[in-house]
């Protein structure tokens, strides 16, 4: 029997009393690149954090390959938003990537030569091998993002969550991330990405989750990422350009 890498059922989350996610349900297909798209405050990052158990949920359940997340942690890799940490921390790129192995090391054990090799290989995959020894504050924003990606690769997971990996990165990094996504897909891995740039959604993702507190639609990009459904998602605040090309651009998103 085929079990889906991620099943979310009736997930609701609230900050204080304000609901952020209401009754979110969907079932992610395996081996796809899935983009989560929606306006600011739609709960995109919240969805990822609630699925990972980083924030408490009001109701609902999340199953990773058919079982609760607490039992399946080793199957899940996570790329947080770049701004979520202090990059002036006294550590090197290699050291940060090695952190991806900590979950498998267990208590008290220090990372050794094997972990170092894995971390170096993961850095090489994002084109950062030569910068392994660099202190992390001396990396550009794009390079920092690639360090986070390499760390997630070091987790050697089957399901990846990425929170806005394309924000504020240079063209080289954007290309590196796209190449990495397709490589992960070829390996049969499932990647769920919070994405904000509507013009690249069709190009980067197979499936799309349109989200605005509730699931507006979830399905293959060709049938889901359409002008009508986007208008519904964004509450009619989108001005479409290039309607024929099918690549909508926000002219006045607010």
């Amino acid at each position: 029997m085929q079990t889906s890498p991620l099943v979310v059922r009736g997930l609701s989350v609230a900050y204080q009393k304000k609901p952020v996610l209401q009754q979110v349900s969907f079932e992610a297909p395996e081996g796809k690149l899935i983009g989560i798209v929606g306006p600011n405050g739609a709960g995109k990052s919240t969805l990822i954090k609630a699925a990972l158990g980083l924030i408490p949920r009001l109701s609902g359940e999340v199953l990773i390959y058919g079982r609760p997340y607490a039992e399946q942690r080793k199957l899940v890799g996570y790329v947080p938003q770049r701004e979520s940490v202090d990059w002036d921390f006294p550590t090197s790129a290699l050291d940060v990537v090695t952190m991806g192995r900590y979950g498998r090391l267990g208590w008290f054990r220090r990372p050794g030569a094997a972990e170092r090799e894995i971390a170096l290989a993961c850095l090489a995959k994002v084109g950062m091998r030569e910068l392994a020894g660099r202190q992390i504050s001396q990396l550009s924003g794009g390079q920092q993002q690639r360090v986070f990606l390499a760390r997630a690769l070091a987790q050697d997971a089957k399901l990846y969550f990425m929170d806005e990996p394309f924000v504020g990165v240079d063209a080289a990094t954007e290309k590196a991330i796209v190449a990495l996504l397709s490589e992960l897909k070829e390996q049969g891995k499932t990647v769920i990405v919070v994405h904000h740039d509507l013009s690249t959604v069709r190009e980067y993702f197979d499936w799309v989750l349109l989200l605005n507190e509730r699931v507006v639609d979830f399905g293959p990009a060709e049938t889901t990422f359409t002008a009508d459904k986007l208008q519904t998602t964004y509450g009619g605040r989108l001005t479409m350009l290039d309607r024929e090309l099918g690549s909508p651009v926000i002219a006045n998103g607010r």
Binding site: G53, D86, F89, T91, M99
Partner: peptide, 16 residues
């Protein structure tokens, strides 16, 4: 190792 991880990125540590 644990203190380093929770000092640098507690969210990631919790995820793992």
């Amino acid at each position: 190792k644990e203190f380093k991880l929770i000092s640098f990125d507690p969210g990631f540590a919790r995820g793992m």
